[in-house]
């Protein structure tokens, strides 16, 4: 009789465990795949963002000549009217486009004069390794609060910079010849107004010989 009671209790316990399993056994391969599925993939994100949002936003970039004139007239007003920034603090970004005369080409940059008749470099297109958050923060399309892990948000910058290096810079280096005309779109990050406004250091999203 006692054995029967134990058998009934064991059967009930087995039934409960079958209905409400206290744990699941998953193969290591499946677990790794599941983890990868929820892990943020900055390269894939940047790819989609570039094609589906960034390129479509290029018409929203401020005309470079308008921006340069505004900065020349009143840097603080230009910042208020045209810049994007995240958080609080001194650094900010411009999203701009324009056409200029190539005045110099080096390993690190392509210098452009925008004002007709001028040979002064007003824009420096960055043409070597790309660092910083100009593209991530410059357009105002991305919001830090959409990314619970700030390291994901930082990884977006790296991934976007990589796309500039692989998609934009090879063509820029090929087409940039002193004396030629070049149209461009891109973002400039301003940390120190005494050094970063003249010339504006632009990370290019697009650059094409005219």
């Amino acid at each position: 009789m006692r054995v029967l009671r134990w058998l009934i209790a064991a059967a009930i316990a087995t039934g409960i465990c079958w209905l409400f399993p206290p744990f699941h056994i998953v193969s290591l391969k499946t677990a790794t795949a599941q983890k990868a599925a929820v892990t943020f993939n900055p390269a894939a994100f940047a790819d989609t963002f570039w094609d589906k949002k960034l390129l479509l936003a290029l018409p929203n970039a401020i005309n470079a000549q308008t921006l340069l004139a505004a900065i020349q007239a009143d840097p603080a007003a230009a910042k208020t009217n045209y810049s994007h920034s995240i958080g609080i603090g001194g650094s900010y970004c411009y999203f701009l486009s324009g056409t200029g005369l190539v005045t110099a080409v080096s390993d690190d940059e392509v210098s452009l004069a925008l004002i007709p008749g001028s040979t002064n470099t007003e824009i420096s297109l960055q043409a070597s390794l790309i660092f910083g958050n100009a593209l991530r923060d410059g357009t105002g399309l991305l919001n830090v609060n959409d990314y619970p892990d700030s390291q994901d948000f930082n990884a977006i910058s790296e991934a976007l910079n990589h796309l500039v290096e692989t998609r934009v810079l090879p063509k820029l280096r090929e087409q940039a010849k002193v004396g030629s005309k070049l149209s461009f779109s891109g973002c400039a990050e301003i940390d120190d107004e005494s050094t970063d406004l003249k010339p504006l250091k632009v990370v290019p999203i697009q650059a094409e010989a005219k």
Partner: peptide, 16 residues
């Protein structure tokens, strides 16, 4: 309130 408010960091060198 926004969940995160980043505060930019500035580089300090002998020049500045």
């Amino acid at each position: 309130f926004p969940q995160k408010v980043p505060v930019p960091v500035e580089l300090v060198t002998k020049d500045n």
